[in-house]
């Protein structure tokens, strides 16, 4: 590792990553034991480790004297080390969201859902088991009440016995049919609306980060105009991210209170843990963004250090990317 042309750092040992790892361990232990005290201690140690790491190893301030750190060796030789680092971080993030998604798909393929019910309704029509003139949607409506409560006997009659008790639960009352979030969300446009607005908001916020970076890198702009543009674009990103979280909480509230879709069911657990983990990522992004806006407000960004916005943007775009998968899988499917 070297500071561009200023390679005077022969030794590069640091305890900071070990301190941060220790903090993570204490934090997670406290979390699992539901101990606020241990969790708080872990968080403090984690932040201390990360801050020490940041101050000790990444003293980049945008000046020519203290240039961007470069990595050496394979495969990132010659690249800015922060850029390589953020991509490695994103690689680990793919694994996290991949495991959420994989677990959901594993369960989902074994559940009966609203899609299976529609398929069965169609099957009943095709095999003339349903009443003449019935459609898949009309049978579906006979099977589930407005509040999505299964009407088992009525459904069995409507499908000519094709959808019987075993479609809903096993003999030992274990649910086979799962009310997934998409069943409620796609049934009512007003329930889908927050998620749909959020999807547009995240895409727009990705674009405003790009605009902030372009403004920061633009050497032709008057510094005052540049600072104002960077601040405003970042502030727009902050507003859109905040809107995302507000709408998400509103939507959760709606699903819990109007449909009784809670974390106590398997489908609810997958939905809230995955969308909640994504929400935490948005929140963390907003915390960093607040500092970035403050820095823009005091005129701290220019073409020398604009790559910090670029690296932040990579994280923010990834949050958008994760939503591109989560939205259709959990909200529409």
């Amino acid at each position: 590792m070297s500071y561009g042309d200023h390679d005077d750092h022969g030794h590069h040992g640091s305890w900071a990553p070990i301190i941060a790892s220790l903090g993570t361990m204490i934090f997670l232990y406290g979390f699992s034991e539901a101990s606020m005290g241990i969790t708080a201690i872990g968080l403090v140690v984690l932040i201390w480790g990360l801050f020490t790491w940041w101050k000790g190893d990444l003293p980049f301030d945008g000046s020519e004297k203290m240039g961007e750190l470069k990595s050496y060796g394979t495969p990132f030789g010659g690249m800015n080390i922060r850029k390589a680092g953020i991509w490695l971080f994103l690689m680990s993030e793919v694994m996290i969201f991949g495991s959420f998604f994989g677990a959901y798909m594993r369960m989902r393929t074994n559940w009966n859902t609203h899609w299976t019910l529609l398929d069965k309704a169609q099957e009943a029509i095709d095999s003339s088991l349903a009443a003449p003139g019935a459609t898949a949607k009309s049978i579906y409506k006979e099977c589930l009440s407005e509040k999505h409560t299964p009407m088992i006997t009525q459904c069995e009659e409507a499908t000519g016995g094709l959808v019987n008790q075993t479609f809903w639960h096993t003999e030992s009352s274990t649910p086979v049919y799962q009310h997934v979030a998409a069943e409620y969300i796609t049934a009512d446009f007003m329930t889908l609306l927050p998620g749909a607005i959020n999807t547009f908001a995240l895409i727009l916020s990705s674009f405003t980060v790009v605009l902030a970076l372009k403004a920061a890198k633009n050497v032709d702009l008057d510094p005052k105009v540049r600072d104002k543009k960077v601040r405003n674009y970042l502030a727009m990103t902050l507003m859109l991210g905040t809107l995302f979280l507000i709408l998400k909480l509103w939507e959760w509230n709606h699903l819990i209170h109007d449909y009784d879709f809670t974390i106590s069911t398997l489908a609810g657990s997958f939905f809230y843990v995955t969308t909640g983990a994504h929400g935490v990522h948005v929140f963390v992004g907003l915390v960093f963004l607040t500092y970035f806006i403050y820095k823009a407000h005091i005129g701290g960004w220019d073409h020398n250090n604009a790559q910090s916005i670029e690296y932040y943007g990579l994280y923010w775009h990834f949050v958008d990317l994760a939503w591109v998968i989560i939205f259709p899988a959990f909200y529409l499917y």
Partner: peptide
């Protein structure tokens, strides 16, 4: 290299 880094975990997915 950055693309490969990003794509690598998708192999496991």
């Amino acid at each position: 290299e950055l693309t490969y880094t990003f794509v690598f975990p998708f192999i496991f997915v």
